[in-house]
Amino acid sequence: MTESAPPAIELSGLVKEFRGRRVVHELSLAVPRGSLFGLVGPNGAGKTTTLSMATGLLRPTAGTARVLGIDVWADPAAAKAVMGVSPDGMRLFEQLSGRELLRYVGALRRMPAEDVAARSEELLAVLDLAGDANTVVADYSAGMVKKISLAAALIHAPRLLVLDEPFEAVDPVSGQAIRTILRRYVATGGTVVMSSHVMELVEGLCDRVAVVAGGRVLAVDTVTALTAGGSLHERFLELVGAGQLVADDGLGWLGAAEQPR
């Protein structure tokens, strides 16, 4: 979009090794500002690892990550101030109620208390959590945890949102609310990077996609370009080369006809 401004996220040569095993291989990726960017890949592709390194939650073995021009690992505090993050599968402070959690995160981000109070009520209402605002997060369902985590990422109105599997376990009604929020957010100049392994969702929502597998970027393009020859689903299976995992004659014993007794 804008020529001079740095991309929302710019990863270059990112490497992550766990105990000598390399899980992310010199990954480079640029996410333009104002895009709704989807990161897709099979399980264990390195999506979460990559997003963690881009958001300052996991130190890369090598390489640099910049958000909105700020080097995440040179100045973590400045980078964290401009983005909102909702990681997948990481617990929240479960002894707090949903409302308390939002106030807590707002205060940690040094926002004025009145702003935090007003915004959290609005977020709770939009995400259909108002009825459970005084329930401790420990007693939330998986979908509710996702929603409150998203609300916590949104409360300081960041310019960049990084969401790991934001729709997992979320019911269709709330899912629609989240889609609307994200579209409106992007329309007003924000950037969203989200990971998912639901291709239909990414195809319908995102405008750009990166396919990641085995810690490498296999393809980056607009959704329109990637899906030129078929659905994103087909293109994805073709890219990761997993079309024939279950051959026609595999698992032949699995079937109702041959049930013993």
Binding site: L57, P87, E94, L108, A152
Partner: peptide, 15 residues
């Protein structure tokens, strides 16, 4: 006792 949930302190840039 906070465990992994401590990421909220990390990501908000708490000193």
């Amino acid at each position: 006792f906070d465990g992994e949930a401590w990421w909220l302190h990390v990501t908000t840039g708490l000193r």
